[in-house]
Amino acid sequence: MTALGSYLHRHPRLRLAGLLSAPLLWLVVAYLGALAVLLVSAFWTVNGFTGETVREFSLANFRTILTEEVYRAVTLRSIGVAAAVTAICVVVAVPMAFFMAKVASARSRHWLVIAILTPLWASYLVKAYAWRILFANGGPVDTLLGGPGRGPGYGLFATVVVLSYLWLPYMILPIYAGLERLPDSLLEASADLGARAGRTFRAIVLPILVPAVFAGSIFTFSLSLGDYITVQIVGGKTQLLGNVVYANIGAANNLPFAAAIATIPVLVMVIYLVAVRRSGALEQL
């Protein structure tokens, strides 16, 4: 044991290799390998009669996605939902995070962080379920708006509200973390040098805020784009990319087509990640 330890101590490269090999093997084989298989199977097809997968290269799936109106509509709707959810989360999260980081006392700040963190650990499903009750016909939202059927009910609106609710903490936390790193002395210095609140905000707060918001948006955007559970629970008949993928795996048993559709959110996310990388968002994760 000791001999091996000293040998490794003298050979840092070997130590590094030892540390990295198992995790990388896992991630590359179990994860990247799986993603690769997914990508490849998107080019396969399913025999309409036998239901068996035909492992031959074909662009049929992508042709269907690009030419059929319904898939274009579903894609645009999903991106729209993800964008709306992200926008709502930003609007709600920025004042909350700002209050936590710069207005609240150190003591209450600690409790506020816990208050934001705790619901993150409550089950995703439980939270979506809570909103199913809230939006139910004759449920609390209806009652508040004056009786059964008066509220929005299940549908696209409910989906956007619930997804915003679910991912809000993911937006608050990076913004809070960013603002907390910003020393108060900088803000005071800016004020001492004669800058008004608006100028200080633009010159000092905004450069911190923007990458933090982008970091949060990676989560809100990605999580909304891939969701298919919430939309089943409160979305009524609404179809998003996630549903279509799920339906093709389950009922239709067409894994290649599901894989082809699943490449859409991956593509959108990769474009999004590359776009926000320049803002320094990835270092804020």
Partner: peptide, 28 residues
């Protein structure tokens, strides 16, 4: 690249991770 690779499974939509693992499991 390594630190990006670690984040990838939660940065990509869960359904993508899910069906990737599903199809890999089925075919391998």
């Amino acid at each position: 690249t390594v630190s990006l690779l670690i984040i990838l499974p939660i940065a990509l939509p869960g359904i993508v991770t899910g069906i990737a693992l599903d199809s890999a499991w089925r075919s391998v």
